[in-house]
Design a protein around this nucleic acid. Structure first.
Lengths: 211, 211
DNA sequence: TAGATTGTTAATCGATTAACAATC
DNA sequence: TAGATTGTTAATCGATTAACAATC
């Protein structure tokens, strides 16, 4: 598995398929054709078939795709059945929101710790987890299996913390800071640049409505 | 302005340029060449010049780009100098985090109201704003200039609320629900699908480390 | 002026779409 | 079997990269 290189464009569509299939499942729909997915999702049928065939022939000629099995196949590709252990670094607005958000568990992402520097926050409970001091970060990572660090820290701290956890063996960074991370270690980074997204929205609005 | 169609690929890189130029400004750097930007940002010099020339010749042959003026030009393109008025719908984890996050103001996004359905939340203050009842949403939008609605509501409510505010004249939706919005009105949508992003991170990790 | 670097055109690369033979 | 729809190859489209003349 994961042998031939698959483009990010394809990967990024997978969660959308997954979500839509989940919805079809809820509606009790058993089978679906690429053509039907196409009209409902606004993606060409051709692209859907191309995307799915990157990973194997999930369909059946003359029939289409079985919703349930396609859903679980895509889930497998995305690794939903595997468990990742994550810590949140930074218990500010975003860190707290993510710590409280329960739905990541469902997708196999377990939050096992929250860290901050602020003495007023350390020791307080967020979603039944006591916020730990950043001083104990290294120790914690060495003593627990930590796959992912969720970075919810200010711009200036991001690079050094990223570096620090990468050195300790954390393999994935989910980065909410506006910093573009460049890390010399073997770490996977996924950025969520909220303000970039907001600026793109602003652009689109100006462009469309010629304010 | 905004005459020839510019691809989304280009637009999405603009906030990154903007951020990096801001950083150079802080360092007190006055001029920069596409080549230097290239090595520092990990984008080809060719692409940088192509991107910038979509909007006009901001550079000078033999010299490069003036950091300050390029920064402000990109800011203008992104509409940072214009003010948008936004409301947050849904005062759950994400809604609260966004309401408390002060940095959007800096980019011209003013949050002027927060709404929720939960009686326990209505009336409470978030970042000096009293949470209003969703019952008063229509009235509020009609009586105030609301450019953007930030949707932080559960999956099931999203479509109907999006429809409702669009009908009332809201022109932009910043959507944090996993719902893929299809709206029959003239509205611009920017989605932030956090769990999609997390799933992509999971995929990358499985792929890279062959768990 | 000579050197540097842009703006812009042309070439390449990759992603999307179309077409159709394979097959359920 | 006939109809439907996939899997897959080929054609098209768009985005990225390379090249270079224009010019500061």
């Amino acid at each position: 598995m994961a042998s031939k290189k698959i483009s990010m464009a394809v990967i990024k569509r997978l969660p959308r398929y997954h979500r839509f299939l989940d919805y079809l499942l809820e509606l009790g729909i058993k089978r679906v054709s690429s053509k039907e997915l196409s009209t409902r999702m606004g993606i060409t049928a051709s692209q859907i078939r191309q995307d799915l065939n990157c990973f194997g022939g999930f369909g059946q000629q003359g029939y289409g795709y079985n919703v349930e099995s396609l859903f679980s196949e895509i889930g497998n590709i995305l690794g939903i059945n595997k468990t990742f252990y994550a810590i949140i670094i930074g218990a500010g607005n975003m860190g707290r929101a993510l710590a409280n958000y329960g739905n990541f568990d469902k997708r196999g992402f377990n939050i096992i710790g929250v860290f901050d520097v602020n003495p007023e926050v350390i020791g307080k409970k967020i979603n039944n987890m006591e916020v730990m001091s950043l001083n104990n970060l290294d120790e914690f990572i060495l003593q627990n299996k930590v796959d992912i660090a969720v970075l919810c820290i200010p711009y200036k701290e991001t690079a050094s913390i990223a570096d620090r956890v990468a050195k300790l063996g954390v393999k994935g960074l989910w980065n909410f800071s506006p910093m573009d991370l460049k890390i010399p270690y073997d770490v996977v980074v996924e950025n969520v640049h909220l303000s970039d997204s907001l600026m793109v929205l602003g652009y689109k609005m100006n462009d469309r409505f010629e304010r």
